[in-house]
Write a protein that binds this DNA or RNA. Structure first.
Lengths: 116, 116
DNA sequence: TTGACATATTCCCATATAGGAATATAATGA
DNA sequence: TCATTATATTCCTATATGGGAATATGTCAA
């Protein structure tokens, strides 16, 4: 088969840098499509199409007011990512360096049982 | 243009569920390709090809010992994701304790739903 | 009503997969 | 040397883009 659809899940959806940029832009405020077109300097169809992907995975929510469509982020939908990262945090504590040390320690132990 | 290469960055690389599974499997120990083939029940070329993507974005590191190629996770390469997520933490609370509570709540809810 | 504005969708195309199968490369041991 | 084992790469194909251009849909205002 080919690659997964970008709308398969949140991980796929945020794989595209432009969609991450949209999410960042929407972090603090609700914005219309044309607000986003101005802010990002992309074509209007490009903005609409990336928003459509984010909408499908529910990372953004649309609120229509006449001609204007206001988009806002749905941060709770990012939880799967946070949870996925969380499984690594339980090994590393607060810093990446601690995780490194932890992994080096246990992997050294495992290696004493090595095959060669 | 077409879609970004999966090796474009860490975000693209982990968009594929199988690659996330490999990373999870490598969290606690170094493993050879055949270890991973056995653990995941995928074909050997499939494992090797997904590892190649992870290797290219430096999420895993290879250590060759004779015929065996040991792979280990490079956790510091997950930092871009952690940092990107950090900006949203304020929406659900920044501590892992709160995340734990959230997860426990969900789990409890799921369990009680199953009983009905 | 009608033109202008706001947004979404469709068409087209070049590109990059993911997966299966076959094959290549490399290291080992008898 | 040669068969076996371990891993990587190549070939093939169906599929899904992301971007540009054109167009459709929806809404408002004069």
């Amino acid at each position: 088969m080919a690659r997964l659809k970008t709308t398969h899940d949140v991980f796929s959806a945020i794989g595209e840098p432009k969609r991450r940029a949209l999410i960042e832009m929407l972090t603090t405020k609700e914005m219309t499509v044309s607000d986003l077109v101005d802010a990002m300097s992309w074509s209007q169809p490009m903005v609409s199409k990336h928003l459509a992907v984010l909408r499908e995975v529910k990372l953004v929510k649309e609120r229509k007011a006449g001609r204007y469509h206001y988009y806002r982020i749905q941060p709770e939908e990012l939880r799967p990512i946070q949870e996925w990262m969380h499984q690594f945090e339980k090994y590393w504590g607060s810093t990446m360096d601690q995780l490194d040390n932890y992994l080096n320690t246990i992997q050294t132990k495992v290696n004493s049982d090595e095959k060669n």
